[in-house]
Amino acid sequence: MSDKVKIEVIDRRHFLIMTGAGVTAATMLAGLAGTAEAKADLAAEYMSKVLAGAKPAEGKVKLTMPEIAENGATVPTKVSVDSPMTDKDYCQEVHIISTKNPVAHICTFHFTPKSGKAEASIRVRMATTQDVIALARMSDGKWYMTKTTVKVTIGGCGG
């Protein structure tokens, strides 16, 4: 008799039922950043406060995050804005905004012409699969935005 367990014959649903691992993992992930309900409103609220009536245009700002995050607790995030970064023309700030975390605002980078490049990297928490928004304000008061989708996987080994 073989003593092997063939993981491939256990499909996702069966494994879920068998172990309740999905539930556990989801609970743990939710624990990282609070309940993962739809929080798009919070993001919209935060953005309208920051923009104060201004309308962001597409382009200029690039947000790089992994398509699939290995763990939602630590997701590498890089933002870069196309700007000459001179005294007269530079990117002042970039806001990173989550659409599904319990708190929409994740962080804001403040740049100066001395920053040399409007570029920064950080690691962030993602409660669940979601869109992340980067909102950039230039020295002339114009706003630019972009967004990217990050899939947060729920691992068989506890996410």
Partner: peptide, 13 residues
């Protein structure tokens, strides 16, 4: 000051 950043609870440990 040439760079600064405001952080919330969404920044990783």
């Amino acid at each position: 000051v040439f760079f600064s950043s405001d952080w919330e609870g969404g920044v990783s440990a």
